[in-house]
Each structure stands twice: as structure tokens, then as C-alpha cells.
Design a protein around this nucleic acid. Structure first.
Lengths: 242, 242
DNA sequence: CATGGTGTTTGATCTGCATCAATGCGGGCT
DNA sequence: AGCCCGCATTGATGCAGATCAAACACCATG
């Protein structure tokens, strides 16, 4: 399971770094987690996990971006999840996943060996509960995503995607900083069920309209947040949870 | 959470009817569940639950079909889940859902009052574990669905949908019985991210090719299972879990 | 048996996005 | 500097599926 990024997942004070696992753990439990913890690094583009392979670790993303993708026989691929720092990968009770996990930028993971981790999950209700909470968050995100894929126009898809990035980057100051655009055009296309050309065209259109600007390929700034939101097709408070 | 229909969810011997809840419960736990159980009926087309309303019950579907849908401001709607008999609705730890639940045929639900049910979930690890298992099944289904919505052609969508119904109806004898087609063309369209006209056209095409036949609006027969599978775009053993 | 209503099929046309193709841009290398 | 290579943009064209519109099947009801 992967999990949405939001404030409540963060836990900067903890060695394991993620409230997902540790917020309510006592010292003994934390010590246990420390024992089975191991860091792993991946370069941009490197596969983290192949579809169908045994999942030997649960892990949480410390830095970088990773993508969950499914690919059809003929090569069409669809992203089915996007991992940002503090997101979690793992499926209690399952030992495989049927999608690929790939690092789209340099990634470091904090991994927990599967078996001991599952024992902790089973033994401590609050951890099990947290895992359930994360699974449900993920499910909500997947459902919003389904609306996007099934019913939104290319323009709406792009606007929704950019707005999601704005929300996830939760900018405190209102100084319109450049926001990280962590994927290539092709990856964005696979995320949104489009082609890279359409992604590029729609971004150009939004730029021409003065809604956003792109200082470079890997960043963007929102110039008119209201206009961006209008373009998403979402109602006032709704939108993707991802 | 809703959950996929498959054999392991069924539990015909049990009063609550669903292994989802009861398979590993002892007599005391079953008695407890019996106490908080109440049946509710809905007519075809009737709303079971509105988006945002408080979820007062967990329930499992005893008979009929229900759909989870999300609707955009301008009326575009996308189905994000389909409930068949033995499927489960409920989200441990959450009290609302952000989609509508509607009966698409006459429906009876076996409902459990929320609070006592959650207490049971918290107290009995194997029930909590089963809930997690169901959430993950659902997540897998949602992800397959995302590939369908984002990357498949209309023809592939229809074929995948029909094949899913075949799988879920798990026909024992090979006598090609008429399989239930539990949705209107419009509902199928909302399921697949298409228009009803396109659904109708693609079904006609498959009929003309001798892949399937439609004895009436609400049933179909598979004449050439291999051809149907070829049309899905899935590889040999893959496909939707739903 | 006509009547109306709902859901379905089929046809004609339009259009948004995919596809094919060329050009542009920036960053790393020799 | 000059070159290349990966990625991005932009243009021209085609097509799958949407949209608009009409006919049709089925069922209930008077």
C-alpha cells in the first residue's frame, strides 16, 4: 500500500521519520523498529520493485519521488500511484504487488524487514489501525483519480495535477515560490492518461493564459490560483486527495 | 470500504451470511453480531447513501446491485465502485464517504450499527485483519480500473467489463447460460468512462462478430470466450480483480 | 389496441486528443 | 567552442469516441 502525503504522516522527531509507524509507539516498540530498519538508495529511473516479485520489505519514502505503474502487453502504461516523501509502501498480509515501483528521481527508502514488521503490526493495534487508515486514504485518492481518468478533459487533468502539487507542497508564505514538478512530460502523461504532446500543449495553453509559468522544465509557479482551480472542474472544496 | 466479490467472501452457513465478518468468529462474537444486525431494503434507483452524510452503519450486500458514484458539478458522473452480493460497505475509523451509493436494482443490506461494530473490529484482531484484506482487494481493483479508464479503448473496456461479469458469476457448468447484465447502458457508460451510445455500439460490434449475444437487455451469453479475452487487451492471467 | 414512457440502437456529424513529424532547447561531454 | 543526446515544444493530419438526432423495442396502463 502506498499512502497519501499530508501533514499527519510526518514525524520529524522520530528516527524512523514517519508518524505512519511511530507516532503512538512506545519506546520498546520504537527500539524494535530501529532494529529492523535499513536504508536503501535508488538512482533516478531505477526500478525499486517489479510487478509480481516478492515484497521483502515494508518501507517509507524518505526523499525523492517514486511511481507505481502498470504496463499493458503492448506497452501502454498507466501510473496508479505516486510516492512522495513520507509515503508508505507495504501491504499487510500480502507478499506481492501487481505493479512496478520505479524511482523517478534519486530515492532513499527507510525499509523494515517484512516478517518482523508484520509481527509488530499484528501485536500492536494502533499500528494496525494506522495501516488501515493509510489504505483508506489511498483508496479515496484512487477514486478521485478514477473520476479524473474517466471524465475530465485534458485541460482539467493538467490543472488538477498542478493544483495537487500545490496542495502537497503546502506553501506557507504567499510568495509564489517555484514548485517542484517532479516528473517528465511523459510520466505526467502516464499519470493522467494522456500523451506527452497533449500534456505539453495544455501546459503551454495555461502559460499563455497567464495562469501558471514554467521557469524551467522541472518547476512551475502559480500566477492565478483561482483560475487554476476553475480549470480543474472540481467544486470549491473537493478535488484530489492524493 | 467496499470489497470485491469472490468465493472467499461467501459464507452460506452463517446468519450474517458473510465470511468477511464471521468466518473466524467464535460463538460469542457471532451472537454479538446478531444483536446489532438489522436488514434494510432499497428499491431500484433509490439512494442508499449520499456523499458526505454520516455513515451510521457498516453493511454487507445480501442481494441486488449497488453502485458507488461520484458526480461533478456539471453532471458528468463516474462510477468508482460496484457492489455485488457479499460485498461490504464500511470504513473503520471514518464516518463519511465522498461518493454516493445507489441501488441499481432492488437491494437488501445486512447492516451493523457502526459503533458496536467498530468495537468488535478493534477488539478482535482477525476481524480487523479481514477488513484490511478487503481494503487492499478494493485498492487492487481500483488500480486495475485506473488502467482501464486511462489507457484502454472503448472496445477493450466493454470486453473487460463483460469478462469481469463472467468471472464474478463463476459459472460451474459449461452450458453457456445467460449471464446477468446488472446495469443499464448509461450505468455501464459511467462505469467505463464512455457514453451510452458508444457502449451500445461496441456491444453491437461484439455481437456482430459472434463473440457474445444478447438475449435481452439485461442478459448476455459468451459465444467465444477466447475472442472476448483477446478483446480485453489484458495478458493471459491478468485482468481486473473487481 | 392505441398510448406514452423509458431505455436502446443506429445514423450523421463534429471535435478533442492521438499520431506522425519536425524543430527547439539545455546540459554534459570531448 | 562544438557536438550530441534526452527531453520538450510546436505543427499537420487522422481518427476514436462524443454529440446531436431519429427511429425502435419493450412494457405498462387506460
Amino acid at each position: 500500500m502506498t499512502v497519501v502525503f499530508n501533514e499527519r504522516n510526518k514525524c520529524s522527531s522520530c528516527p524512523i521519520r514517519h508518524r505512519a509507524v511511530c507516532a503512538r509507539c512506545d519506546d520498546d516498540e520504537l527500539a524494535l523498529l530501529e532494529q529492523i530498519k535499513v536504508y536503501r538508495s535508488f538512482e533516478a529511473g531505477q526500478p525499486i520493485h517489479w510487478r509480481g516479485d516478492e515484497l521483502t520489505h515494508f518501507s517509507s519514502l524518505v526523499s525523492g519521488i517514486a511511481a507505481l505503474t502498470k504496463t499493458m502487453e503492448d506497452g501502454r502504461t498507466q501510473m496508479v500511484g505516486l510516492l512522495l516523501p513520507s509515503d508508505f509502501v507495504g501491504r499487510p498480509g500480502r507478499d506481492t504487488v501487481d505493479f512496478d515501483v520505479t524511482a523517478t528521481s534519486d530515492v532513499t527508502l527507510c525499509c523494515f524487514k517484512r516478517q518482523p514488521f508484520e509481527e509488530i503490526v499484528e501485536a500492536t493495534p494502533h499500528v494496525a489501525q494506522r495501516m488501515m487508515e493509510m489504505a483508506l486514504d489511498e483508496l479515496d485518492a484512487a477514486r478521485d483519480w478514477m473520476v479524473l481518468l474517466g471524465r475530465k478533459t485534458a485541460r482539467e487533468k493538467i490543472a488538477t495535477f498542478l493544483e495537487m502539487l500545490v496542495r502537497r507542497s503546502h506553501v506557507e508564505n504567499m510568495s509564489i515560490p517555484a514548485i517542484d514538478l517532479p516528473l517528465t512530460r511523459e510520466e505526467i502523461a502516464n499519470f493522467l492518461g494522456l500523451t506527452l504532446e497533449t500534456v505539453s500543449r495544455q501546459m503551454s495553453a495555461l502559460k499563455k493564459e497567464g495562469v501558471v509559468s514554467f521557469p524551467d522544465r522541472r518547476h512551475f509557479e502559480v500566477l492565478d490560483l483561482a483560475a487554476l482551480h476553475d480549470a480543474t472542474g472540481d467544486d470549491a472544496d473537493g478535488g484530489m486527495i492524493v
